[in-house]
Nucleic acid binder design. Sequence first.
DNA 1: TGCTCCAATGAAACAAAATTGCAAATGAAC
DNA 2: GTTCATTTGCAATTTTGTTTCATTGGAGCA
Lengths: 160, 160
Amino acid sequence: MRNPVHPPHLDDFDRKILAILQRDNMTPQRTIGDAVNLSAPAVQRRIKRMREEGVIRADVSVVEPDAVGQSITIFVEVEVISETAEQIEQAKREFTAAAEIQQCYYVTGEADFILVIIVPSMADYEALTRRLFFGNNNVKRFRTFVAMDRVKVGLGVPVG
Amino acid sequence: MRNPVHPPHLDDFDRKILAILQRDNMTPQRTIGDAVNLSAPAVQRRIKRMREEGVIRADVSVVEPDAVGQSITIFVEVEVISETAEQIEQAKREFTAAAEIQQCYYVTGEADFILVIIVPSMADYEALTRRLFFGNNNVKRFRTFVAMDRVKVGLGVPVG
DNA sequence: TGCTCCAATGAAACAAAATTGCAAATGAAC
DNA sequence: GTTCATTTGCAATTTTGTTTCATTGGAGCA
């Protein structure tokens, strides 16, 4: 079976294009072309290829939670009891399925998973903890951090 | 003359549009219009308004770090010594300024800041720790978690 | 009720951008 | 030097975004 992520053959053009798209993916291809010294169609073909290869994972609007009403950003460190491959995969599936969980990472260190959660209220978070953590007998402990200030929010990947 | 600053007022149309844009902001306005029962111009006006009001903070491509070459995602909990307003603001400025720091949150709990960092290599992370943590006498301790798997990555905000 | 005012809408016209077709340029292998 | 595969730029085409404008549907009020 092929690795889902293809061997990346990104040249300087691709990297420059990515740098622009990570800042503003509504930039016209013509403008990008001017910036990287390429024609608009050439830019378009490269973007299309990078989407197909999975280099570009998604194209999204970033929404300000405060503007959408009540919303709380929460970090959770989760430590599991059994770290067998099967148990870990199961946990990944459960965390991925939860709509409130925006980001889920499997990590080394004093925890096994780190979750970034956005919920409308603390009551929602409590309900989530009951469902995901207390209701999961493979969770040894979890530690909660509530964000008072989203100082910086980005998903940009250094490309240069 | 209209007041230039409106309190963010989102109706069901806006919320449905946001839900779509958070999933794929390249969706044509006509398609969005069909989905929410609105004409393309109406959709376009609402999107424009939400951008101006800051409800939509940015429009970006999400890049797969693994595809761009070496890249390591790291979480750091930072605890500071002095939590005066001035010291906190200073820390926020420093963390915001660091290009490697993708996300920075000021949190309650057993840490004061949580950082999400993406660097090309561990050597880069070590250099960063020397600069930001060891070189900052207000940092009491920091705890590092290295991501082995970016299970789920999103910045979506629940709007329903 | 009947009236104006105002904000928001949709249809159509219009402008801009994305996409495609194609010939030429580039470069690597032989 | 020839061939083959890739990538490019230009121009034509299609799709999408944006503006215009007349209309609709209230809210407030005499």
